[in-house]
Design a protein around this nucleic acid. Structure first.
Lengths: 199, 199
DNA sequence: GTCTATAGAGAGATAGAC
DNA sequence: GTCTATCTCTCTATAGAC
């Protein structure tokens, strides 16, 4: 058991606050969550928040900058190691898991998006964070789709569809059966391939 | 110029409040918007809100119930009169218009969805409202896709993709070129058709 | 670096006038 | 049916103790 330096202790507090903030913001929203709630959820009191972040809004922005694409990036990395066929199944599974198991992910993404839309000065930052997982996906798609423009377009479609289906399943599970995303991907790539040959 | 009855005057006030609420909630969110702001935007004062709606939250719920799918329903109706080929172009155009011109639509949809996720007692109501435009679309898709299950699945995919692309274009326009949605639909339906023949 | 206590502002909701 | 005035509570942010 090693002693923590002052800097390490502060970093640990910071991480705990960010994790707690992610949960509370997901459940109550940026405006609906109180600083007190977040601090308490992290096991600290208000003061800890203000000594680590300037304000509630700055805490939210830090969360957006550091964690907005964590899960998506990690998912993309896992996909990158899978076989093409297997990847489709894995993607379908991902919609189910994210929609059914991770209660906080989609609402938090929605909060981030709303904040970006309402605060133009952060929009580019947000867009950049979202481009990272997309670029990873584009690379993955590029293995079976030679044309780089097509690969980019397809990955944009895949991500938009993923987000849309996750939200839809969250409020109306029956409308998004387990294999729907996988099926959509098969149709999409079959169609795109046919299109390519036709040229 | 005809005189308004008492009931008509009240109905008019109610409508104006709902319209103003749509704008203000879209721009500031449910928690971020104040009742005062909404009343002022409608040209009334706080009292008018409380005499027509029980609370800020009830006003929001009324808005969700009455207006959540207005635009989508109307869009679906327009599509229903178009030729299949023309419909794809019209859909693509719709993404652009909704994302670029109607500043309030997507944020308000996000607010509605977040509210439904956070308030389970309203989730089914919300899901029903969203099923209406989807059913219209299913009928439209049914013209070219005989299997009703397939038609239902395809319309779920189309709507999820539509919402996803609108949000993506809103924060990162370059990633969603004008014709992307139309192209995605062509690939999707081509692929689904090929799938059907294969059986 | 974190906690406790508090100042100060803002906003939801109500009561009574018109 | 709508407006004005107000009551009340909650929450952000800060100051000072430890």
């Amino acid at each position: 058991m090693t002693r923590l330096t002052r800097a390490e202790a502060k970093a640990r507090t910071r991480e705990r606050l960010l994790d707690a903030a992610a949960r509370v913001f997901a459940q109550k929203g940026l405006a609906g969550a109180s600083v007190d709630e977040i601090a308490e959820a992290a096991g600290y009191s208000i003061g800890a928040v203000y000594s680590n972040f300037g304000s509630k809004e700055q805490l939210f922005v830090e969360l957006l900058k550091e964690k907005a694409n964590d899960r998506v990036i990690r998912a993309a990395e896992i996909m990158a190691d899978a076989e093409p066929d297997e990847a489709r199944r894995a993607f379908s599974q991902l919609v189910i898991e994210v929609a059914d198991k991770d209660a906080d992910f989609a609402p938090l993404q929605a909060e981030f998006w709303l904040y970006a839309v309402r605060n133009p000065e952060l929009m580019e930052t947000y867009a950049e964070r979202m481009r990272e997982p997309r670029d990873l996906l584009t690379e993955l798609v590029g293995r079976s789709v030679p044309d780089p423009d097509r690969a980019g377009e397809l990955s944009a479609i895949v991500i938009a569809l993923f987000q849309g289906l996750v939200r839809m399943r969250r409020v109306d599970p029956d409308s998004v059966p387990d294999e729907l995303f996988g099926r959509a991907l098969r149709w999409l790539f079959t169609g795109a391939e046919a299109d390519e040959e036709q040229k």
